[in-house]
Design a protein around this nucleic acid. Sequence first.
RNA 1: GGCCCAAUAGCUCAGUUGGUAGAGCAGCGGAUUGAAAAUCCGCGUGUCCCUGGUUCGAAUCCGGGUUGGGCCA
Length: 284
Amino acid sequence: MVNPGAIYVCGATAVGKTSHALALARELAGEIVNGDAYQLFRGIETISAAPSEEEKAAAPHHLFGVLEPGEDCNAGRYAEMAGEVISGITSRGKTAIVVGGSGLYLKFLTHGASPLPKGDKALREEMEKRPLEDLLAELEKLDPVEAAQVDRCNPRYVSRALEICLLTGEKASELRDSWEEKTRSLEASLNGVWLIREREELHRRIGIRTRQMLDEGAIGEVAKLDGISGTWEKAIGVKEIRRLLAGEISREECEELIVFATRQYAKRQETWFRREKWLKRVEL
RNA sequence: GGCCCAAUAGCUCAGUUGGUAGAGCAGCGGAUUGAAAAUCCGCGUGUCCCUGGUUCGAAUCCGGGUUGGGCCA
């Protein structure tokens, strides 16, 4: 499951991962592998801040724009795709440079998937209609340990826990434990960096990039994909641009809202990567 | 120049009949193995514009001022 040959380049959005990875690729004659949940999709290159054509020409790039906007993706599927690509690169004697900011996706790649079942769309839709207390009560019956451990305020986590129990007939808490046990020793063989910038500087870069995105086609991307639903819709900026297109907010308000959401995302990414102790910190 | 209205957290604003203040947003911190750019949790001392006064007690009532806005000249 682990890919010891690969080098991971992680960090918050707009920190400068792409250019850092390109420099690394040149140095090592390496190949870039996307580690970003939304850059997987075709048609949202601008809004997902995917590398430009020029950047992609500078080194071999993999897993950018490989999914149709109508498709759904998840961490397990990503890790499978990326694992194959990395093996291919390694077998050619090259270095894979995985660059991205999607913590959970990367974690699946570096630590492997737990033995838990993947999400079940129909079951989720059904659970979404039930009140949280109801889901908690059922989880309580099937797996009291998990019911005590989960974030009981977060409907996503509660329903996921219940989903695992219903799908496997086993206890989610026990399945999770076995995975954590197995992955504990993997980190010694991992190689990666966490790119860091001061908050103020990161915010400045987010502001600049958001303005560019809106100037350079993000609005058109969202307009063009109107009516197509899927994972892509949850990208930051989509709901804001939809409000702009609907005339609910001005261009300035739209930009401001995207900046806010992006900053908050960057903070969540930092919180995630801070816990990944195997990453070497690199201040930019 | 005269009259009227506003002034409270970084921003937009609440604040009941006087008992020294609280929402949303922003910001900050955190959780997070199959929706993750998702989802969720925690964090609010601020000259209540200034200044006199009334009162046991004023963001709240009264006078004067300052700033902004509106109306009339």
